[in-house]
Design a binder for these strands. Sequence first.
DNA 1: CTGAAAGCGCTTACAG
DNA 2: CTGAAAGCGCTTACAG
Lengths: 357, 357
Amino acid sequence: MGTVSFNVGNCMCADTTSTTQATILQVAQDAGVSKTSVSRYFSGERYRLSPGMQQRIKASATRLGYRPNQMARSLKGGRSRLIGMVVADIRNPFSIDVMHGAEQACREQGLSLVVCNTDNDPNQERDHLALLASYRVEGVIINAAGQPSQELSALANQGTPLILLDRTLSDYDADIVALDNRQAIDAALDHLQDQGYRDLLYVSEPTSQASSRQARLERFQQQLKARNLLGKWLCLPLGQEAHHLDEAIAAFLAPEADTHATKALLCGNGNVTLAVTRSLVRQQVRLGDVGLMGIDELPWADLIDPGITTLAQPTDIIGRTAIHSLLQRLQARDRDSPPRQILYQARLHARGSTRPG
Amino acid sequence: MGTVSFNVGNCMCADTTSTTQATILQVAQDAGVSKTSVSRYFSGERYRLSPGMQQRIKASATRLGYRPNQMARSLKGGRSRLIGMVVADIRNPFSIDVMHGAEQACREQGLSLVVCNTDNDPNQERDHLALLASYRVEGVIINAAGQPSQELSALANQGTPLILLDRTLSDYDADIVALDNRQAIDAALDHLQDQGYRDLLYVSEPTSQASSRQARLERFQQQLKARNLLGKWLCLPLGQEAHHLDEAIAAFLAPEADTHATKALLCGNGNVTLAVTRSLVRQQVRLGDVGLMGIDELPWADLIDPGITTLAQPTDIIGRTAIHSLLQRLQARDRDSPPRQILYQARLHARGSTRPG
DNA sequence: CTGAAAGCGCTTACAG
DNA sequence: CTGAAAGCGCTTACAG
């Protein structure tokens, strides 16, 4: 992909003398006041200082380009003002949107969000948690990739509040903010039944490392019986082996080629919807004739011919809520209340892919 | 979107005594050694310690759950091991992929990436830069939202290397890693001409705050003349007002409704491609009859009926390269060499949307 | 309203 | 191979 070309230009930087950052001491001396006063000026205690002193400090600080060293600050003060976010797959639109919400909530609170991506690798998850701990983040929101690790408990035991996103952790009971998976599956089934689909295939990524995938699948299986519907399910990794998916879908659709109208595919998340749609397009299946529905809204859902029906998660809100829950925990009085579960309802976007012939 | 339900469970946390983090002093006392030795143990100077001492430190550290405080470390040692990344739009797939590449490169170097999103808001950009400066990040890679700010120069003057991503900054000459915009436009025009399109409309988001948009548009305008092609261009924000886009496209297509075959739309980036495709679908235009091509590859590009032709950027590589360039600058001997420009070629994915009738 | 002093948790000469 | 001591840049009682 890459021929590389180097072009050399001239440096027009106004100031090439690379000054080293000014310290509080320098400002104090320059202004002829004590470090204490400078510290007060920058720690929201300005009102205690005489107008004259405020003037001088401001002038010196500006001239020297002083910025309080946040590292030193948190070392002494005890607050890092940092929140950690650990996501399993940064390239998943769900993660991005949650992150966007979380970041906004942080900013409103004067906090910063440090985002770590694990690519669903428990080792990376461990490393990133250790890292966050070493920076003494004040809290962590995590979309866990694997089992609860030592690092996680270490963090918890050292008093750092933890909020789970989307996925629970076995044997580890903490606050969680997530989609109400049972309601989502029920809503999907309600809709598919309303539209006349009777024979369903649920497609999911492997459920072992993600409780939400597990929960959705289980509910699907259970409701199949409860509703007396025909149905199968399929769990497979969405890697390169696209033909596995093609074959499985073909097998599902094959038996009675002429009664397709009652068959529908339900996709467990956005990635699955992408892969399944691709497979259906490859097999030239007309959407709607075979129903197609997916959990997670996608930017292109309305662009594929009759439109793809989705169940949208309130991603932005999930991110914001996670941060707010963290803040709650951070307040001393709420440290030890029992774990909370905050579950959100999915919203249906009905489109052509669930409108039979 | 959101009914909220609260469910309360029991806490099964193994250890509810919220211990406070152990310090180097505690480990030293517990192991009966000096702080110096403990410090050495955790700073890669283990080999200097006698086996017995290593044993005892290890045992004590494990038992106490000791983790060096990275804040204290960087305060004294001078290295924060943090790299800042400032992106203009975190929800743009381009940003995500670049970030993914950058993060990997950082991890390989034992660095951590702190990502800040500005939502294209110069104020947020300023705040985030100040924040990164206050944490004494060792370098910054930035997809700048606006003009070079004070904060940016402050960072540069304090000796923090800066790498621009995708967008240059007027009057501010720094290393940049980006797409070769001229080559990309040329490649697009070559392809469109080869396919028989002669009348072009270039669609872009507003060019004022993003040099890459500006560069692409300028090259388009210039090549139009050089190649003696018919063409127009359109710059508009991709907000709610979809009808503006619809009207502009309709106007472009209207004049000679029967000779559509020679008309094509070229989209300046992935967001534009999404908006334009949506508009075309709304207007029931058949892709290919009207050519459609976009800069930036998209996950759904091959799913829209005949497939959408794109010019892919090597996003992952751009991210990695940015970090590597930063590392170069960090090495003392390379501090003052002139700014480098590393430009990558786009790769063509030819699909049905540029295959006339 | 202001400041001197102690100390946050670490690293790094320096000395042995 | 090991440690005492100074100091990184800040905040926070404490005293005036």
